[in-house]
């Protein structure tokens, strides 16, 4: 089971995880990214490249399924405006054993950050600014090469 969704709708954890658990695997791992509330951000906006973003996420998910023998994988990413505390992204993977599920989940979130076209803009009291890419994210993605 592959599920890739890019949508302005809030991410419902229970529904998404149930979909992955239904594959009947021995282990399910997940990562949830949340808008940080601790550094003055009042609003986060996510822009994407319709079509190309979904295609990039599908390619990554197919790569993870093949590399770790996953039974199911789900990548759900929100776009549009969101508030601190809201979910931005959910990655969930199902495999016969935990190591594959955990490694595939880490691979997907690391590579999503460098390989899928999304752009973040933060609003703080002082105004709006586009978020700069981080070298640490490139390094995290490269460890899966």
């Amino acid at each position: 089971m592959i599920r890739v969704r890019v949508s302005p709708e809030p991410i419902d954890m229970a529904t998404e995880l149930a979909g992955v658990e239904a594959a009947g695997a021995g282990g399910v791992a997940s990562f949830t990214g949340i808008v940080r509330a601790d550094d003055g951000v009042e609003l986060l906006e996510l822009e994407h490249y319709p079509g190309a973003t979904e295609a990039a996420l599908t390619r990554l998910t197919e790569e993870a399924i093949a590399r770790w023998g996953l039974l199911a994988a789900s990548v759900v990413h929100r776009v549009g405006s969101m508030l601190p505390g809201e979910r931005i992204v959910l990655v969930a993977t199902a495999a016969p054993h935990r190591t594959a599920a955990l490694d595939a989940c880490a691979f997907l979130i690391d590579r999503l950050k460098t390989d899928a076209p999304f752009w973040k803009r933060e609003t703080r009291a002082g105004g709006r600014r586009w978020v700069d890419a981080r070298d640490a994210d490139d390094a995290a993605a490269r460890r899966w090469d």
Partner: peptide, 10 residues
């Protein structure tokens, strides 16, 4: 052809 800044999703 698309031209854009380095990506910052996730």
């Amino acid at each position: 052809v698309a031209i854009f800044p380095p990506v910052t999703g996730g």
